[in-house]
Computed example of a mutant assay.
Amino acid sequence: MRLRRSVVALTAVLGLALVSACNSGDDKGSDEGLQKISYLTSFGQFGREAYAYVALEKGYFKDAGFDVKISPGSGTVDVMKQVAGGQADYGIGDFTAIAITLGKQKLPVTTVGMIHQKSLAAIVSLEGLGIKDAKDLEGKNIGDQPGSTNQVTFPVYAQRVGIDDKKVSFVGAPPPTLPQLLSSGKVQGIGQFVVGVPLVEKADDKHRKAVVLSYGKVLPELYGNAILTRTDLAKEKPDQVKKFTTALLKGLDDAIKDPAGAAEILKKYVPTTDVTVATEELKLMTPFSKPDNAGDPLGAVDPERVQKVLDLLSTASAIQPAGALKPADVVTVDLAPKG
Rank of each mutant, 00 (worst) to 15 (best):
R2A: 10
R2I: 15
V8L: 14
V8K: 12
A9G: 03
T11D: 06
G15I: 08
S20K: 04
C22V: 13
N23T: 05
S24G: 09
G25M: 06
G25R: 14
D26Y: 13
D27G: 02
K28L: 12
S30G: 02
S38K: 15
Y39E: 01
L40G: 02
L40D: 01
S42E: 08
F43T: 02
Q45V: 13
G47S: 03
R48Q: 10
E49G: 00
A52N: 05
V54M: 11
L56A: 13
L56P: 01
L56V: 07
V68A: 11
V68L: 15
K69Q: 11
S71W: 09
S74P: 00
G75D: 09
V77E: 11
K81W: 08
V83I: 11
G85N: 14
G86L: 10
D89G: 07
D89V: 13
Y90Q: 06
I92S: 03
D94V: 07
A99P: 01
I100M: 12
T101S: 13
L102T: 00
G103S: 08
Q105T: 15
Q105F: 01
P108C: 12
I115E: 01
L120G: 01
A121I: 00
A122L: 13
I123S: 02
E127F: 04
G128S: 04
G130K: 06
K132E: 15
K135E: 06
K135C: 02
D136P: 01
E138K: 07
N141H: 08
D144R: 09
P155E: 08
V156Y: 14
I163D: 07
V171P: 05
G172L: 12
A173G: 06
P174S: 13
P175W: 14
S183A: 14
V187Q: 06
V187Y: 09
G189E: 09
I190E: 04
G191T: 05
V194Y: 07
V195C: 02
L199Y: 00
A203D: 06
D204K: 09
D204M: 10
K206W: 06
K209V: 05
K209G: 04
L213Y: 11
L213T: 03
Y215E: 08
K217Y: 08
K217N: 13
V218C: 06
E221L: 08
G224W: 00
I227E: 01
I227S: 00
L228R: 01
R230A: 07
K235N: 05
P238E: 04
Q240C: 01
K242D: 03
K242T: 10
L249F: 10
L252Y: 01
L252I: 03
K257S: 13
D258N: 15
D258L: 13
P259N: 06
G261R: 14
Y269P: 05
Y269K: 12
P271V: 11
T273E: 12
A278C: 11
E280P: 01
E281L: 10
M285G: 00
T286L: 07
A294Y: 02
A294S: 13
D296C: 09
G299N: 03
R305Q: 15
V306K: 00
K308N: 14
T315Q: 14
A318H: 07
P321V: 12
P321R: 11
P321H: 12
G323K: 09
A324C: 07
D329Q: 09
V330I: 06
T332W: 01
V333I: 11
D334K: 11
A336R: 06
P337T: 05
P337I: 07
